[in-house]
């Protein structure tokens, strides 16, 4: 146990996700010995993130203005909307360079065990966007786990009566892997979702 400011810093760092007491202590002593300019830059950046970053009023991605970069881009298609769980999923899909539509960030997935139901997600806002009539295809890009699949099923049921094309990201074998190492669920889904060549 240390005294004063250094212990306060260790305690604060220890509250961050994935940072245990040992890591918090290591980071605190690194900051103590680091160049004051570097430490000030880190502190300023952290303060600026809290002051400047907010959620886009249209898609709920992270943004520094009223709307995020994707929503402001007039070259993107308004007819295709991709639903994701978290802002980091937007970044992952943007890295592919394959998608030129818009996004909607739900803020999580339906998880009854954690008390997260449809009302805790931005599903009402999604329905409001879809009711404008511009979107022709809705891509459900929630995580390929139980909670993500259940959320996609729920959304598909909700949206189908609106007459949109509703699609789900394909599941299957990772590029570069050997077939013999694929687990039975992934391999099974790859068979179900096989395509003509």
């Amino acid at each position: 146990m240390y005294e004063g400011a250094i212990q306060d810093l260790i305690d604060e760092l220890g509250r961050l996700p994935g940072v245990g007491p040992k890591s918090a202590q290591r980071i605190a002593f690194h900051l103590l010995s680091a160049d004051p300019v570097d430490v000030n830059r880190l502190a300023t950046t952290m303060r600026r993130v809290k002051e400047v970053v907010r959620f886009c009023t249209t898609c709920f991605n992270v943004a520094e203005e009223e709307q995020c970069r994707v929503c402001r881009d007039t070259r993107r298609s308004d007819e295709v909307l991709c639903v994701v769980e978290e802002p980091k999923d937007v970044v992952a899909i943007e890295r592919t360079g394959e998608f030129r539509g818009r996004y909607h960030v739900l803020g999580g997935a339906i998880n009854p065990l954690e008390g997260i139901g449809p009302d805790q997600l931005r599903i009402r806002e999604l329905m409001a966007r879809l009711s404008a009539g511009t979107v022709k295809e809705l891509i459900l890009a929630t995580d390929p786990n139980t909670e993500g699949e259940a959320t996609a099923t729920y959304l598909a049921l909700l949206v189908k009566p609106m007459g949109l094309t509703v699609t789900r990201l394909a599941s299957g074998l990772p590029v570069g892997g050997d077939l013999e190492y694929a687990d039975e669920i992934t391999l099974g889904r790859a068979f179900v979702g096989r395509r003509a060549v």
Binding site: L113, N145, T146, G177, Y181, D183, E184, I185, T186
Partner: peptide, 12 residues
């Protein structure tokens, strides 16, 4: 995505 048994540890 490279996990060998992640899919087997889904709920239920």
């Amino acid at each position: 995505t490279s996990s060998k048994f992640g899919a087997r540890l889904e709920p239920f």
